[in-house]
Simulated assay, not measured.
Amino acid sequence: MHSPANVTQTPRDAAPAAVATAAEDAARAAAGPGVRIDLAGDVPRLERVARFLAEVWRTPESRPPFGVDVLRAIVHAGGAVHCADDGTGLVGASVLTFCAPGSRAVYSMIAAARTRDRGVGFAVKQAQRAWALQQGATSMLWTFDPLVSRNARFNLVKLGATAVAYETDFYGRMDDGIEGDGETDRLTAAWSLAHARTGAAAAGRPLDSPGPDLAAAEIDPRRAPDGEPFVARAADGLWCRVPPDIVALRREDQPLAVRWRAAVREVLDPAFRAGFVATGFSRDGWYRLTRREQA
């Protein structure tokens, strides 16, 4: 895995102090929803993780996103499979591996929670962060669908990550119950594991991002597929809006969902190529993009 050149790296002398703090953050995050988060390495546990991921991604149990053989190989190679259990069964899981030697980065291949609102997903990410810092990593990368607003807000606000690159049709066509059969554009998230912004978010003090002031901003004449304002420019950066629930929209109106993909790509792809990164996401669905040097 090639690490993007613009990933913020944590100074080497910050890591030792960050390890203990991250472990405390992870324990507190797990206590909130009342889950126990462990590393899975043996085949029976990995089978449970594979079944859980198939359930969350709505794929046949015989065709999970990650099979037991792949999970076993990742662990054997030095990666990590985390699983969260609330006493009734698995409610969260993740898969983590290392990036290129010398990058001091890890790559989160998948992370999932059974429900959105309990804080399990946050706890799983904090467990990943603590483990990665213990292994000497300073940053974590993963990808997410730019149209999924709840994931954008979780990644950029609740975790304090930054989106640093736009990838067109990153995986090719996928056939699962989440993505449908559309193109798989992704944003690359970069999470500086011991950065002050990350630490504040882990402690429950995320830097919220309000949407643009539409009365003062320059509104692009282009309209979103729903006919509403879509792109705004202001002194503090560029803004782009996405639909509130693209997953539901894909079930209800696939042609409209496809139009949203094309419209957002037309704005975000050139913006990232021009040197913007996404540093925030408002509650009403607006990405905040700033110049990389100002992020």
Rank of each mutant, 00 (worst) to 15 (best):
A196M: 08
F122G: 09
A257K: 08
E167I: 05
A271S: 11
P11N: 01
G79W: 03
R36G: 14
Q128W: 06
G227N: 11
V49C: 03
A93L: 09
G41I: 01
E266F: 03
A23E: 14
E24T: 14
Y171W: 09
K125A: 03
A112F: 03
V120P: 09
T290P: 09
G280Q: 01
K125E: 07
R58Q: 15
V258S: 13
R63G: 12
T290Q: 15
R292N: 13
A234I: 06
P101Q: 14
I178Y: 00
A5Y: 07
V124L: 10
A217Q: 02
T188K: 03
V157W: 03
A190V: 07
V264T: 07
I110M: 15
S149A: 15
A234Y: 05
A202T: 00
D42L: 11
P270L: 12
Q9D: 10
K158N: 13
A40L: 14
V68D: 04
W286E: 08
T88K: 09
R186L: 04
A217M: 01
W191E: 08
P65I: 00
A274D: 13
P11L: 02
E183N: 06
P210G: 04
S103C: 12
P255I: 12
M174W: 07
N6K: 09
T59P: 01
Q9F: 01
A84C: 02
G78Y: 05
W260G: 02
A15V: 15
